[in-house]
């Protein structure tokens, strides 16, 4: 769901046209659409780099973790998931809303990693490193749009 769908659903529930706050929200959203596009393109183009850099940072801080025990498959899986989370953040930036992250990547996430025996606290650290690596590549305007979704991701672990 996007911010547009969100304010429409909200107005619909109240049986009214959009209110002035909602209209302003949409105006702000459309006003910085260029930044949204460029942020999402940078995340897409640099996904691999962000994951590599983030992982390195993460393993420095937390060497004893499933993705750093020499089992290639586990390392690949962990990095694949991190790449996915970057993609979900890029969706959120374009949608102006955290729903894509929540619906696709957070709903059920804990159960999944617990069943895979991946310590959530380690993942939390990994996601923090991922954020840092991503922020380093974005302009301050782009970072201001993407940062909160990374924060939400980190908080959810």
């Amino acid at each position: 769901m996007s911010i547009v769908a969100k304010v429409i659903a909200q107005s619909d529930r109240a049986d009214r046209f959009l209110g002035s706050t909602e209209l302003t929200q949409l105006q702000d959203f459309f006003n910085n659409s260029d930044v949204r596009i460029s942020a999402s393109q940078k995340l897409a183009a640099n996904q691999q780099r962000i994951v590599e850099k983030g992982s390195q940072q993460f393993w420095n801080q937390c060497p004893d973790t499933p993705s750093n025990r020499g089992v290639k498959q586990k390392t690949a899986l962990c990095q694949r998931d991190q790449g996915w989370y970057i993609r979900l953040v890029s969706y959120c930036v374009l949608a102006g809303n955290s729903k894509p992250l929540e619906d696709i990547g957070l709903d059920g996430m804990r159960d999944m990693y617990v069943s895979l025996n991946v310590p959530l606290s380690n993942l939390r650290m990994a996601m923090r490193c991922l954020k840092q690596a991503a922020m380093g590549l974005l302009s301050s305007e782009e970072a201001a749009l993407a940062g909160p979704y990374f924060d939400q991701l980190i908080r959810s672990f």
Binding site: M1, S2, V4, A5, I8, S40, L43, A44, Q47, W84, R87, S90, Y91, L94, A95, G96, P100, I104
Partner: peptide, 18 residues
């Protein structure tokens, strides 16, 4: 549905960025 969501959902089905 809205335009944004209707573009994101099929991209996600394929694991692609927009």
């Amino acid at each position: 549905q809205d335009t944004i969501t209707s573009l994101i959902n099929p991209a996600d089905e394929k694991g692609l960025y927009l």
